[in-house]
Design a protein around this nucleic acid. Structure first.
Lengths: 99, 99
DNA sequence: ATTAAATTTGACACATCTGTCCAAAACAAT
DNA sequence: ATTGTTTTGGACAGATGTGTCAAATTTAAT
């Protein structure tokens, strides 16, 4: 399975449509350097970036969020033995709350 | 559905078996005050607490972790529209990695 | 009501995080 | 090789997080 990091995911797409970091960073209203670090996984992405990223990279917001969440969870909780069960439980609770 | 916070969960159990904060905190090797804040949700629990908590509170580690994860996820990602999908995806990736 | 124990509060120190700035390096094009 | 552009690196400031300490409050017991 792939397990692509968030950084790789947006970098790949950015190169695909041939936008320089400069442009994308400007659209997100952050420094070029910051975005570079996010793409290389040196820093985590802020959730604030997700919406604008989906816009300028012409990606489905749902996919962007999904990739972001999966990546962050594996980084934040990677060490826990019972992560799978915890996620299932979290899902249940979220669904029940969404009503 | 309940959606019990991690703090409520361990406080309830601690009171059930009638241990003072003092004792539990000592076992976790943290200040009483810190544990008090964790129980009341004023501060997040450190993952380091989970194992010792499960021991001194005589709880299944799996349940402790699960509650911790569910709580933290809802706090960390509460705002995202596509959280459910993201969690499913994260689960998939974790499972595939566990091989 | 006093005393003792348990719990909470708030100020504090120290560490970590987040993003910026600007200089350095890598890359393209000619 | 020089110039222009993109990308990266590292020092930095300000914000946020983590836990401690000591004092204040609450609770329980007598």
């Amino acid at each position: 399975m792939s397990t692509v990091t968030f950084g790789d995911y947006i970098r790949k797409r950015r190169e695909e449509i041939e936008l320089p970091l400069r442009k994308v960073a400007a659209y997100l209203d952050i420094d070029t350097s910051t975005l570079s670090k996010v793409e290389r996984g040196e820093r985590p992405a802020s959730p604030d970036y997700l919406k604008p990223l989906s816009e300028i990279l012409e990606l489905d917001l749902k996919e962007v969020q999904t990739t972001y969440i999966a990546d962050k969870i594996s980084k934040d909780f990677g060490g826990l033995e019972h992560l799978s069960e915890g996620l299932k439980e979290a899902e249940k609770q979220i669904k029940s709350k969404k009503r």
